[in-house]
Amino acid sequence: MLTFTIRRLLMAIPTLLFISLIIFLILDLAPSDPTASLPLTIPPDVRADIRASLGLDEPIHIRFLLWLNQFFVNEPLNLLQHWTGWDLGGEGRTRVISWQTRSPVVDIIAQRMPQTLWVVGTSYIVGILIALPIGIYSAYRQYSIFDQAGTFVTMVGFSVPPFFSGVLVIVIFAVNLGWFPSVYDTTHVVVDWPSFVIQLKQMILPVMVLALQITSQISRFMRASMLDNLNQDYVRTARAKGLTETVVVMVHVLRNSMIPVVTVIALGVPQVFGGAIITEQVFKVNGLGHLLIGAIQGGDIPTVQTLTFIFAVLIVLFNLVADVLYGILDPRIRYD
């Protein structure tokens, strides 16, 4: 398993380079324009000058190499310099600069990370924690009232998109009841208990909306997979051996049912970092999802490229994690 992991990690490098090239080509081909959002009162020749100052005049391979150099050489060097205080000759080293804000992309990402992790990360954990018991119990008591109700709620929950459910909870809890704020304050700093309560309050609504989606999805897969395994012969054997129901279900069946669920959970982690575009917009959380969609709409290629590349790294990494977990869950699976 170790050699497998190392081999896969090495393989990841050319894969990621290839992915970043493809992303770059698509972004370049896409017809969006960084000056599109400017008022029409700005004349075309000024727009042409703006594009030239962004470096859009250069041929595409030069721009790609420039980005590679900025992202893989300059940014790490700058980071090192910042952390250690060594002088690594920072003069003249260009960073990846966003076209919209004209500031380093990496700094903005670092600034957006906390709210995304707070909101999307929490809802992911909450979602998983609710989904697994629901899925297990629904399968164990298939067609019970609990199962039927669970099916109904999760399917409706999944069918209702966040652009609607978000507004619905705002109207109920922020406008009519006035319990929670409808706008997330990103400058809020948690220092003591009262400020933590404020943070909790402003997180509740977006977490509610997001967790519903995540719960629905994962609990469905959990239930289906458990159902598959509950009828297997080894379950009968285990019961025949006189093992308690808890052990049979929670140890034998659960472990064997986890493979699809692990896949879904692992695939979801990069999406946590990708933020939740619509939910972030509805509650004005302004995290990474908001950054990405804004950059795409503004034709801000350096930002989109950097963000999607980070997602690509996470995707490759967590798919590897899933593969390793398969081997642990089912020792018969071997890759070597």
Binding site: M11, T15, F18, I19, I22, I23, I26, L27, L29, A30, P31, S32, L267, P270, L292, I293, I296, V304, T308, F309, F311, A312, I315, V316, N319
Partner: peptide, 25 residues
């Protein structure tokens, strides 16, 4: 396996909106 799963990684990583704009164009 390796090839197909890397292809899957690629598709997972592609930014959807610009891709759509390109396809539509």
């Amino acid at each position: 396996d390796g090839l197909l799963m890397r292809l899957t990684d690629l598709f997972l990583a592609l930014p959807l909106l610009p891709l759509l704009l390109v396809i539509i164009m």
